[in-house]
């Protein structure tokens, strides 16, 4: 499901359909998180990606929709587009083959037992507040800076326009 919706993002031309397909892909990734035993991370994925980032993307799509998107393009433009599409596909297939060969040729020496079925919430909280306190604070400051910066960027500094 995840891969299928991601392919649909790649193949569709309508940006709104791409956003909804991204919704399905993010839900699939959240389901895979649950299967990998990361319940807290799955909930975080749902809240931040599906609830926040996707809404922002859809707002961006709706605010920057150009009404005249008809066939006002020349024919050479289509050639340029198909060339870029070809190289994009080629690069992605090459990367996928490289990763696949690397993965199938590698033997991971996994020490330690696998995760049992208990919740990961306690471990995450304790780790976040003890040995990972500095990255936690830096992430908070980063979010504050991003908030102020985005508000400043989106501010309309030219009221006549």
């Amino acid at each position: 499901m995840c891969i299928g919706s991601a392919l649909f993002i790649l193949l569709t031309r309508n940006l709104m359909y791409a956003a909804f397909a991204l919704f399905v892909a993010l839900l699939g990734v959240a389901a895979l998180y649950v299967l990998a035993g990361a319940d807290f991370l799955a909930v975080t994925q749902l809240m931040i990606y599906v609830g926040g980032i996707l809404v922002l993307l859809i707002f961006g799509i709706m605010l920057t929709q150009t009404p005249e998107r008809q066939e006002a393009t020349a024919s050479n433009r289509v050639e340029v587009l198909s060339g870029r599409r070809f190289w994009g596909f080629l690069a992605s297939v090459a990367v996928f083959c490289l990763l696949l060969f690397t993965l199938l040729g590698s033997r991971f020496r996994l020490g330690g037992d696998t995760l049992t079925s208990r919740s990961t919430l306690r471990t995450l909280g304790v780790e976040l507040m003890t040995s990972h306190l500095l990255p936690f604070e830096i992430a908070g400051v980063l979010l504050l800076v991003a908030l102020i910066g985005a508000a400043y960027l989106a501010l309309n500094r030219n009221p006549s326009a």
Partner: peptide
């Protein structure tokens, strides 16, 4: 495979936070 410390999940959590900040600034 790291059930005592879960460093991978912590890193993934920070990646999600940075991605959220990045998308906000990029849309601005």
């Amino acid at each position: 495979h790291d059930p005592t410390f879960l460093r991978g999940q912590l890193f993934a959590l920070f990646v999600i936070v940075v991605a959220a900040a990045e998308v906000t600034v990029a849309l601005g």
